[in-house]
């Protein structure tokens, strides 16, 4: 039960952060990405604020040695720059540049009810599902052959 409440509160704070920062508005994201047009630097302040707080907060948390209601910190162990990481990030970048939504803001935007959001979110979930079906060695095997 504690996990459910924590998840709910963390999700709510995250979502409120997205709304207050203006990131639930794809126009603001697209204007950040439009360096040579109607540039709006706000997104840099969102990332800056988030990273600054998290950078410090993570270190204070890790100094405890273990999380409060779990046994250990689940941190990604991978360190290699594999083709999966690079191609995935590139594909994500194209979609982000086309729609102005990344996964968090798209979900948070659901109650605002825009027709574009109502198409984007189900398509995003299908894309996520497809990526999870892709075999682990999909790109690594191919690049090793070439």
């Amino acid at each position: 039960m504690a996990r459910i409440i924590l998840g709910l509160v963390a999700g709510l704070i995250f979502g409120l952060g997205l709304v207050i920062s203006g990131m639930s508005n794809p126009a603001k994201v697209l204007n950040f990405l439009d360096l040579f047009g109607t540039w709006d630097p706000s997104l840099a302040f969102v990332m800056g604020g988030a990273v600054l707080v998290t950078l410090v907060g993570y270190r204070l948390v890790w100094a405890r040695g273990a999380p409060l209601i779990d046994t250990r910190f689940e941190l990604p162990a991978k360190t290699d720059l594999d083709p999966r990481l690079l191609s995935g990030a590139a594909v994500f970048g194209v979609g982000w540049g086309l729609g102005g939504f990344c996964p968090g803001p798209a979900l948070t935007a659901i109650p605002l009810g825009a027709s574009g959001t109502m198409i984007f979110v189900p398509a995003m979930l299908i894309g996520m599902w497809l990526a999870r079906q892709a075999p682990a060695g999909l790109l690594t095997a191919r690049s090793a052959q070439s």
Binding site: G88, G95, G127, R132
Partner: peptide, 11 residues
């Protein structure tokens, strides 16, 4: 855009 964002971010 949704399809690319979903696939790319998880992949």
């Amino acid at each position: 855009a949704g399809l690319l964002v979903g696939f790319g971010s998880v992949f």
